[in-house]
Design a protein around this nucleic acid. Structure first.
Lengths: 219, 219
DNA sequence: TCATATTTTGACAAATTGTCAACACGAAAA
DNA sequence: TTTTCGTGTTGACAATTTGTCAAAATATGA
């Protein structure tokens, strides 16, 4: 991600090679992403990915232990991309309304810009989840998102803005599910963007808002 | 499903054979279900399914055009099972509260009784969806569920019980997403069943209830 | 230019998936 | 009883997909 202008002679060897190496990986990942989205997991062969990436077939297995690992890396990359966008947006939000609307908006824009990517990533995350060599299962970014919502909710409760009879973990997960509607549904079907986002935001906020608080919705 | 006691000589041939045929299919489907859930889609080979079902390898391909089709049939079967349970339950419900709580409860019981089945079915539905030979894509049962919620919501709006600024289609989908939290999450994690169901029900009802209506929640 | 280290490659091996000619079995006809 | 016929089953085999690795290509520093 950073431009490499001048490098010391000492580093030049590994630096250039690392860049080349990283390049191959990125090209493969980009190709994989395109094909997984276009044709689905099954109709995408490691061969196809390699060819589209412009590298030899064997190179694929230098960067991914197998096809499944490649898919998981694709999912991870897509999720991290959205994650970065969401975090950036959340940093600018003051109210719960802004937070909910912001997350939905960012997700929707991403879906428009990258059709099918989030849908595949979301579905794949569940179907493909795999245990680590050490026996543990990596907590998915989905769980992380749910946990973040849980925190937001817990803070809202302390401030008296959110019903205090909620278990933040559970409701955090519920909010996540609603927001993920944007990712899994077909954007063409939902019609007007503003209409869709407003509806979902209202639903979530009304579900959260403690008595007397909810009337202030200004959407 | 129906007992065959006496059959006319005329029917006897095809009747017995049909039963045998249906048996093979059911055995395969049951085996597939067990293995897909236990090991996941990838680590389940058509061979394994056939062996567990106690039929020859070739028989598998008599009933499923390929492995993917077998998985889709598994998904369909699981969804139809839950669907029947949910419909039966809904028929007994008078209030929205009962409906929401009922659907959640039925789903949760099913998940406890059939660990992993709904999770696999839900994820698979999205990842594996395939176009029909005739070009159309079969509307998934998930869409049907969303549509049912939409109807419920529309009726609630007419009765003045639900916010009338909602688009029923969108909020129907949102409610569906929340209820599907039961299917996708790990039941062990949620802890107390009552606690979990009550939280989700409250969230949904508070999100739906028109002003002045929501205070009557008696959960 | 040479010696060394790193990355790439595609022919090959392994595994999985899918096909089909031969077979098994019950029912009706000869 | 024996033969014929239709249906369902089977596993050896073929096709495809997945994964490996010794050899080759490329880069680096002396």
């Amino acid at each position: 991600m950073s431009l490499q202008t001048k490098i010391t002679p000492q580093d030049s060897r590994s630096a250039r090679q690392d860049k080349r190496k990283a390049d191959s990986r990125q090209r493969l990942l980009a190709a994989a992403r395109q094909l997984f989205v276009e044709r689905g997991y099954h109709d995408t062969r490691p061969q196809d990915i390699s060819r589209l990436a412009g590298v030899g077939h064997g190179t694929f297995y230098l960067y991914f232990s197998d096809k499944q690992a490649c898919f998981q890396d694709f999912v991870e990359q897509a999720q991290e991309e959205v994650d970065a966008l969401i975090l950036a947006r959340l940093a600018t939000c003051k109210t719960h309304e802004q937070r909910v609307y912001g997350v939905l908006e960012v997700s929707m824009d991403f879906v428009k810009e990258n059709p099918g990517v989030l849908k595949a990533a979301w579905a794949g995350h569940q179907l493909m989840s795999r245990d680590n060599p050490d026996g543990t299962t990596t907590p998915s970014i989905v769980d992380q998102w749910a946990a973040r919502w849980a925190e937001v909710i817990a803070r809202g409760q302390k401030a008296g803005l959110i019903w205090d009879d909620y278990d933040p973990r559970i409701i955090g997960y519920a909010v996540l599910m609603v927001t993920s509607a944007v990712s899994t549904g077909d954007p063409e079907v939902w019609g007007d963007r503003e209409h869709f986002l407003t509806n979902l935001t209202r639903f979530v906020l009304r579900g959260l808002a403690a008595p007397g608080v909810g009337n202030a919705l200004k959407i």
